[in-house]
Amino acid sequence: MATVVLLTVTGLGLGALYFLIASGLSLIWGLMRVLNFAHGAFFTIASYAAWTAGEALAGIPSLPLRWLAGLVAGVVAGALVAALTEVVLIRPLYRQQIGQVLVTVGLALAAVALVEGGFGSDPKQLALPAWMTATTTILGASIPNTRVLVIVVALAVLGVLLLFLQHTRYGLIVRAGVENRAMVSALGIDVERAFTLVFAIGGAAAGLAGVLGGAYYGTIDPVRGTALLIFAFIVVMIGGLGSITGSAIAAAVVGLLQQFLNFYAATGSGDFAVVLLLAGVLLVRPGGVAGSIT
């Protein structure tokens, strides 16, 4: 029983990280039809921004404060780099879908190489508050607190994103843009600003994942973002491109499937099963489980 609880929480925690990356990918795709390969780079840049901030504030004795400063630095860095990417690299290639994918590929290669050059390829430790390294006993299982933290944050982000999409003016523009971008711009609404906004939101979520990933795994390294990105792509495909709720459900399913199979069957079989699941979903429903943005 304890094992099952532990695996469930760990799987959901992994799913939470996937969701934080996938939600941005899904929104960006839904509105702009851009497949953002640089999303993993946002994750990596944010985690190193958090580490740098933590090191810069080494004089402050309070670990939670330092960690929070790192969190803010990571999220801001993610949002800024993402917004900059949209304005400088994506916008000049408006309506050239392949070209847009290609620049994000180039950016991803260059950014990860730069981080590797600047910080080295060895894993680094983020300074974590004491309660994050502790465990809590739930139903007889000792659960690392970071797992719970990641899940709670991801649920909060899901709630905020849904509120934003359904109850704000910009959310309305984004939803309308996903349905019919040409019509929205024909109505005289500045869709380009919505593009930058969606990139910034996606970058902030990926940045959040970058900092929380440092807590979840205990260390940060330059290539984890890229590795997670591939599974985030799979999550987005299974959940349905452009659907936030679809991504959330798919992220949970993928995270759980991976953890349980990797534990009970051979290591790596979970990762393999996820790809098979994707193939199965595509055979039955080529558009993913959910269709539109909700």
Binding site: R33, Q97, I234, G268, L276, L283
Partner: peptide, 28 residues
């Protein structure tokens, strides 16, 4: 035969997923 059921960018992502499966298999 499976990947080509999708087109455009989704095709890119599905082929990526299969290649990843291959990579995992080799690593295991």
């Amino acid at each position: 035969a499976i990947c080509l059921r999708t087109r455009g960018i989704p095709f890119a992502m599905v082929t990526l997923a299969f290649a990843q499966a291959g990579s995992i298999l080799v690593m295991q």
